[in-house]
């Protein structure tokens, strides 16, 4: 059976959920061989094995944390040459897309980014993408070289599929270009204790209607009652009410949760671009004409300062 190379996104050995989703998709095409780089790389093996990985290629070096992107491209290329895979799959983070693109260029392949589904096809994997602010769905194929495809979070279910997950060391010697861009400092983002925005099953977003940074507590309290992540519209971010890392939309995160609740958000095209593929959409907005209502499964026309606290109370009451 053909092998499929999967680039692992992990934090000190803890594999992030989008990588496990990638393994589900990879198994439709062939046998997953994972590439894990940097500190804790070998610690990823157990989790990867549980989800169908036959082999885990690992390498650790200071360069991965000290220089931007290129060291990882060098390593992925070494893995590619060793495995000769049927496809290379990478999680669609900002960095993932850059790594994938540079690899594709080096190996003379085409690249597809931000796939939301992947199927095996006669002429290679067929990727589904959502384009033009999610108003269109396309099916595409890489027609040149080994397909390099990046896949968005929440595109597949995580499935248990025990496999060997044998760890093998990768021998990587970095190119001269690898040390071109130095990372001179790093400030870790403070953990909120809430799920990762792009990975969450439920996302609650607030917009200009929330009316101030302090009022976001309302959204956060509701989020915590549902175990949800918190997002914001650009209007709320630009006003300084919520961090840019939580922005949902074209120039923020693209989310695709089971449930998306928009409070005080009008539903501009750029916001839709980041949430329109959510399974169930709910909006609370005092303007019955707000375009967000065109998308909803359930909408409440009303003042969020009334509706949100009542909803939070009701959820708490129901959960006892």
């Amino acid at each position: 059976m053909a092998e499929v190379l999967v680039y692992v996104d992990h934090v000190d050995g803890a594999v992030r959920k989008p990588t496990l989703e990638l393994l589900t998709l990879a198994r439709r095409i062939g046998e997953p061989v994972a590439v894990a780089l940097g500190g804790g790389a070998a610690d990823t093996a157990a989790t990867l094995a549980e989800h169908g990985t036959v082999k885990v290629l690992t390498h650790d070096a200071a360069e991965y944390a000290e220089y931007l992107v290129v060291p990882k491209v060098d390593a992925l290329q070494v893995a590619y040459e060793r495995v000769s895979p049927a496809a290379v799959l990478v999680p669609s983070s900002a960095e993932g897309k850059e790594i994938a693109a540079r690899l594709a260029l080096r190996i003379g392949s085409g690249i597809i980014t931000d796939a939301i589904d992947l199927e095996a096809g006669d002429e290679g994997p067929v990727a589904t993408q959502s384009v033009f602010a999610a108003s269109f769905v396309t099916k595409s194929r890489v027609s040149k070289g080994t397909p390099v495809i990046t896949v968005k979070p929440n595109s597949a279910a995580v499935e248990a599929a025990p496999a060997a997950g044998t760890v093998e060391a990768l021998a990587v010697s970095f190119s001269e270009k690898a040390t071109g861009t130095k990372i001179t400092g790093r400030t870790a983002r403070e953990s909120t204790g809430r799920p990762e925005l792009t990975e969450a099953a439920i996302v609650l977003s607030g917009g200009r209607g929330v009316g101030g940074a302090e009022n976001f507590a309302l959204i956060e309290t509701l989020a915590d009652s549902l175990g949800a992540a918190v997002g914001a519209s650009r209007a709320a971010v630009d006003a300084g009410w919520y961090p840019h890392t939580n922005q949902v939309g074209q120039t923020g995160k693209s989310v695709s949760p089971q449930l998306y609740i928009a409070s005080g958000i009008s539903g501009a095209i750029q916001h839709r671009a980041g949430m329109q593929t959510s399974k169930t959409i709910v909006a609370i907005n005092k303007d019955a004409e707000a375009p967000i209502f065109d998308l909803v499964d359930y909408g409440v026309v009303g003042d969020l300062f009334e509706v949100v606290p009542q909803l939070t109370e009701e959820i708490k009451a129901r959960k006892g």
Partner: peptide, 22 residues
């Protein structure tokens, strides 16, 4: 081009949802 778009379709309009006034 090293990629081929095989099909493009407009996303079906979402079924009209329930809207209630508070």
């Amino acid at each position: 081009a090293s990629t081929t778009v095989e099909a493009a379709a407009e996303r079906p309009a979402r079924a009209a949802g329930t809207i209630v006034r508070d």
